[in-house]
Structure formats: C-alpha cells, structure tokens
C-alpha cells in the first residue's frame, strides 16, 4: 500500500459559503495522513500553490448560479477523473435555490446599488444538472467522517459506504428521545437522510433537513402529521424550503402547501 500513487486532489468552489471545503481542513487529526495520501493540487482555501490538471479526484462545492459558472463546471469536469459534489449547494442548489421560487430580477435592485454589474441566472441548480457526477455527498455542511470515507473509497477504487436511511435511526441508536413524539416539536428527521449524527434532536431541536431528503421519502405523510401538530401551511412551506429547498422531494412538498 505504501507504493500506492498519491492521488491528485482538487477542490472547487461555486456558489457556496466555503463551509464544506473547510470541513476538509477541519480533519485536523487526519490532515497529515491526508497530505500523505493525496497530492493537494488545487485547493485555494488551503494553498496558493496550484498544480495543473488533470486531477484524480475533484471535490466540488457550491451550486450553479451564474452563466460563467455554468461554463466553468464543464472545464472542471473535463479536468477530473472522479468528480464528487460536496454539500447541500452542490447537491440540491443550497439555500440560494430559494430564488427558484421567486423572480430573481426583482431582488437584484433591492440588494445591489448597481444592478447592471450582476450577471446571474434565474435559478440555483445542483452540479448534477450540468455535468455527470460520480458521487454526491450531502449535508450543510458535509460531515467530515463521511468526507474522509469518500476520499478513502476513491483511494481504494471502491464506492463510499455511507448509510442512506433516516435521521431517526441515528436518534434511536444514540438514545435520543424523539422530539416529535415526546415534545410535539416539528422535525424533518423521518424524511431526512442520515449523516450528521442526529445532532439537533440531541439538543431537543427538530431536524432542519440539512442532509436533504431520503430516497423516496414520504414527505406528504410527515407534512400531514406536522399539520396535526399545529403547523400552518406557511410553516410547512418554510420547513421544507430551507437549505435543501431545491431537492426534488422537498420542493414538491413545500409547493403543495403554498396558497393556490
């Protein structure tokens, strides 16, 4: 294994807050091993030294919100053997996908003194809408253990082993008392993909759905249950229209609670 070639790693940023790439730098105990296993070829947040592609593994953070980025992602794809998107922005469009439900043209003059300088798209969309993606790592931000697993799997030429069940599994394994059942607190845990370690319910908060929807979640049944617990349609629109507003299942559920 010592003879293994060091993989060339690149980290790319699109419309995002940088929190997900920071998760990589946050791998403090593993950083030396990471630097040993990978050649960090392109990672502006970590180093000004930039090596030319092609790259073995590209981690892509952020969503596509500008015409320029819609072009740039194709260059990244061309330069990457394996392309993994990291975080809610890259996998579902992020919080900035709220623009998808409104007219971004109306917002621009409210925010910018000189709207003419702003060249933006009407929507914020995930990377997979633009180029083929080899693996999507969810979360806002991504979980660093999951990120390491993705890197480790790529190093070993296998698929990452990441659970895709509900957050509820994790609450129960941890011994966290269900906030929805015991407190009547609205919680997206039953329809949200695991990965964070079920942090919020452990602090008696409902899950915000940072890791996005499960595969085929029953959001309608949860919406109905939350309505019985006293949530208004407006509350439900907000609950499903958060960090993963652009994820298909959450988008549909939020739209089903909009006034007609």
């Amino acid at each position: 294994m010592g003879a293994r070639r060091r993989l060339k790693l690149a980290v790319w940023k699109f419309a995002s807050c940088d929190g997900c790439q920071l998760s990589l730098l946050d791998c403090e105990d593993e950083l030396l091993a990471l630097a040993g296993a990978l050649e960090i070829a392109h990672f502006p947040e970590a180093s000004r030294a930039v090596a030319k592609g092609p790259y073995d593994l590209s981690l892509v953070e952020g969503s596509i919100t500008t015409p320029h980025d819609a072009e740039r992602i194709h260059q990244v794809r061309r330069a990457s053997k394996v392309l993994v998107t990291i975080g809610a922005c890259a996998t579902s469009g992020g919080i900035q996908a709220l623009r998808n439900f409104a007219d971004v043209g109306e917002w621009i003059p409210l925010v910018y003194a000189t709207p003419d300088f702003i060249h933006t798209l009407k929507t914020s969309t995930p990377i997979a809408n633009h180029v083929p993606v080899d693996f999507e790592l969810h979360g806002c931000p991504v979980d660093k253990r999951q990120l390491l697993e993705v890197i480790l799997a790529t190093l070993n030429g296998r698929r990452p082993v990441l659970a895709a069940h509900s957050v509820c599994f994790e609450c129960k394994r941890r011994g966290t008392v269900c906030v929805l059942v015991a407190d009547g607190t609205p919680c997206l845990g039953p329809v949200t993909r695991t990965g964070c370690g079920a942090i919020c319910p452990a602090y008696r908060r409902g899950c915000y759905g940072c890791f996005g929807p499960l595969k085929n979640p029953n959001t309608a049944a949860l919406g109905e249950r939350l309505r019985i617990l006293g949530q208004s349609d407006a509350d439900l629109v907000r609950a499903f229209r958060g960090i993963n507003a652009g994820a298909e299942a959450f988008r549909r559920e939020s739209e089903s609670h909009e006034p007609r």
């Binding site: 129960k172 029953n218 049944a221 949860l222």
Partner: peptide
C-alpha cells in the same frame, strides 16, 4: 404505506 414514513422508529424501539 400512504401514512408510513419508513423512518424505522418502530423497529428501533
């Protein structure tokens, strides 16, 4: 199945 969330809570408890 229309009501079930498939969240797994029943099996965990």
């Amino acid at each position: 199945a229309n009501r079930c969330l498939a969240c797994g809570n029943c099996t965990m408890v």
